[in-house]
């Protein structure tokens, strides 16, 4: 592509993508075949071929597959949102939580569960099964977006610099989080269980509705990234440099911020705040891509899906029926990984 002599190709970057795609298929396959319910390989194969016992069909098609798809999509969302935020804020520790997205979603879900009881007959006691769980993804997403918008508005009144955004995000996030925790602490009811499960980031009982909720955002988000690739490259520079290279900085910075908030908020709504994926995956992708920066996005997408799928698989297998929430698995596995990556950085 470049006629400039002396441009060496980075082989590590080129070979890692097919390898990761293979790994993704492997994790997806394992997730279908392994689980708490003990199904034989032949049972599963016949379900996949369109036959099989009703029980096996229900386990594979209604429980495992939607869970895997939802997890994979959410993983892509968190990872890409983290990549965008780390790029445009030039902060290697940025993840969707610096925009207050998770905390906003937490508060809105808390408030929703708290008040939803009043929407029903006052006589009945709200049990978990009667709660409007189908609304949680949308409520969480709206809460996350509102928090992101508040951070943006607060930072926009000043210079909209990366540092300003980060400080506003941390401040707003802390306030929202404190309010949510205060509500939870002073509340104590059956609904807390739903909330805690959602808060820990879980793929338990995720259905096709969740996957269908996420899919449009995944497609729109990834498509929107393609035309702004060069803008993202330029947003890695300080504003005066990006602007003198010809980039209308404010518009593009705002759009990239909006995109990452949308991706993160929709994922948080669907599966709860899964920590560390948005932070770690872009670093892993960067380590693999090396100088081949055009591979960064595909690697981030693939690794995002792998991380959540395999994290969920580990959570399901380690503790069998009392599965460990994916959020806990990513946090426990994420910390050593982060330390290892930090040791590599010069």
């Amino acid at each position: 592509m470049t006629p400039v002599p002396g441009i060496a190709r980075n082989r590590r970057g080129l070979s890692s993508l097919p390898a990761l795609a293979g790994l993704l298929l492997l994790t997806l396959g394992l997730s279908v075949f392994l689980g708490v319910a003990d199904l034989s390989v032949s049972d599963i194969m016949s379900v996949l071929a369109g036959n099989g016992s009703p029980e096996a069909q229900s386990i594979i098609l209604d429980i495992r597959l939607p869970r895997i798809v939802t997890g994979g999509l959410a993983g892509i969302h968190f990872a890409v949102a983290g990549l965008i935020l780390q790029t445009i804020t030039r902060n290697p520790l940025a993840d969707p939580s610096i925009m207050g997205v998770s905390q906003g979603a937490t508060l809105s879900v808390t408030l929703f569960l708290l008040f939803s009881v009043f929407l029903r007959d006052p006589g009945t006691t709200a049990r978990i099964t009667e709660m409007p769980l189908e609304w949680l993804p949308a409520v969480g997403m709206v809460g996350g977006l509102i928090a992101g918008a508040a951070v943006y508005a607060l930072a926009f009144r000043r210079d909209l610099g990366p540092l300003r955004i980060t400080l506003c995000g941390i401040a707003i996030g802390a306030v929202l989080h404190a309010i949510a925790i205060g509500l939870i602490a002073g509340w104590g009811s059956a609904r807390i269980e739903v909330l805690l499960e959602w808060l820990s980031g879980s793929l338990y009982a995720r259905s096709w509705e969740h996957a269908l909720f996420l899919a449009p955002f995944t497609i729109a988000g990834l498509l929107a990234l393609l035309p702004i690739r060069r803008a993202l490259d330029l947003l890695q520079f300080e504003a005066p440099v990006a602007r003198s290279f010809g980039l209308p900085y404010r518009q593009h910075f705002s759009f990239a911020l909006f995109l990452s908030c949308g991706l993160a908020a929709s994922a948080v709504g669907a599966v709860g705040p899964i920590v560390f994926v948005g932070l770690i995956v872009p670093h892993l992708a960067r380590a693999l891509a090396g100088a081949k920066t055009q591979l960064l996005l595909p690697l981030t997408v693939t690794l995002g899906a792998i991380t959540i799928t395999s994290g969920d698989l580990i959570g399901r297998l380690v503790s069998q029926a009392d599965e460990i929430p994916i959020g806990a698995v990513t946090a426990v596995c994420g910390v050593p990984l982060l330390i290892a990556l930090l040791r590599r950085t010069p």
Binding site: Q236, F237, E238, V241, S244, G246, R286, T293
Partner: peptide
């Protein structure tokens, strides 16, 4: 900005670029 950048290039003091 983009039209201006075709007319005028500006290099600040000590600019920074991403590591990689």
């Amino acid at each position: 900005r983009r039209r201006l950048a075709r007319q005028l290039a500006y290099l600040p003091q000590q600019p920074t670029a991403p590591d990689e």
